[in-house]
Design a binder for these strands. Sequence first.
DNA 1: GCTCAATATGCAACTTGTTGCATAAAGGAG
DNA 2: CTCCTTTATGCAACAAGTTGCATATTGAGC
Lengths: 182, 182
Amino acid sequence: MALRYALMAALHEAPATGYELTQRFRSRLANVWNASHQQVYRELARLLEDNKLLVETVAQSDKPDKKRYHLTIAGRKDLEEWLNTPQPRPPVRDPLLVKLFAGDLLDSDVLKEDIEKLKQDWLAQLGYFRSIEHTYFRQPSALSRQYRLQYMALRRGITQITAGLEWLEELETTLEELDDAP
Amino acid sequence: MALRYALMAALHEAPATGYELTQRFRSRLANVWNASHQQVYRELARLLEDNKLLVETVAQSDKPDKKRYHLTIAGRKDLEEWLNTPQPRPPVRDPLLVKLFAGDLLDSDVLKEDIEKLKQDWLAQLGYFRSIEHTYFRQPSALSRQYRLQYMALRRGITQITAGLEWLEELETTLEELDDAP
DNA sequence: GCTCAATATGCAACTTGTTGCATAAAGGAG
DNA sequence: CTCCTTTATGCAACAAGTTGCATATTGAGC
């Protein structure tokens, strides 16, 4: 049910094609929602069927045609209702923590590689989020309510990753101590 | 695929019934994995079919019978292989951030209720995790590698919630500023 | 010239997760 | 005495998410 509303929220911000929405999910909305392009296209077709969206076909001479989707009045209303009712928090399912939980079967070198990979991913993500912060949210107090709330969504991403990186440091320290005194 | 291994990891720690596993997912493993009892029973049946588990039927005079599951050698080996290969990080899908993203359609009072509810949930969760920390992990440096790694899984839960609560404060401050100067 | 990545869309099959229901007995609240 | 919660298990239908494949064009790198 929620993917519909993630898509509608993105389209409420600005009309877009399925391809563009998929890209937003992978970049600017990386800490908000993610979905594969297949899932996006399928859900857009359903939303269109339900009259929550309109299509505008954009012919392109060089590349394949685009279908730009717009939120309808009904769609906007539907989104508004959803936004103003309580929603569940995201489920927790973290393979890395499963690994730690069965730590006695886990090889230390493998774990160190996992940590290094995760750290690199998170650092790249953090750099990206910080660049958005720097370019679009220099003086949050001067912004409209709408943009300040969007900024808080971005802040969530930044603080989550920062906390994650600090925890990774703690984990690395633990592993070093275990190496020193086995 | 990963639920299998979450279950196997829990059973590797200690044999248990489907009911007990469901309870662990809701309490001590709340920051690691979650699954409904229906999902747990279904997956246990599959694991049994695949000879990764053994059942021990425990007759009870007063309550209904129990089925206690044990990890087999094959199951343990399977788990070990999984643990030592790279696993994907959890997908990101947060309805609250979707709400903030379409903040112009979101009522401030509704948002404040969402925040209050989430804060209470997180505080309860944090209190619970801290009580585990206090009772079982007083001197982490004195523990075996296995338990130190389990402790780091718990630490992840604690630091995640702590960061979440700090972000909620930031969000509340933003809302107050918006209320003062509209 | 050839291969690979990016743009742009989608179908089909499958796995995972959710929701609703069912059964059965004990013990506590009212 | 009746209703609700806890313990204990599970089926069935459905929704959501993943994986593999398909097509068509442009531009960049080797």
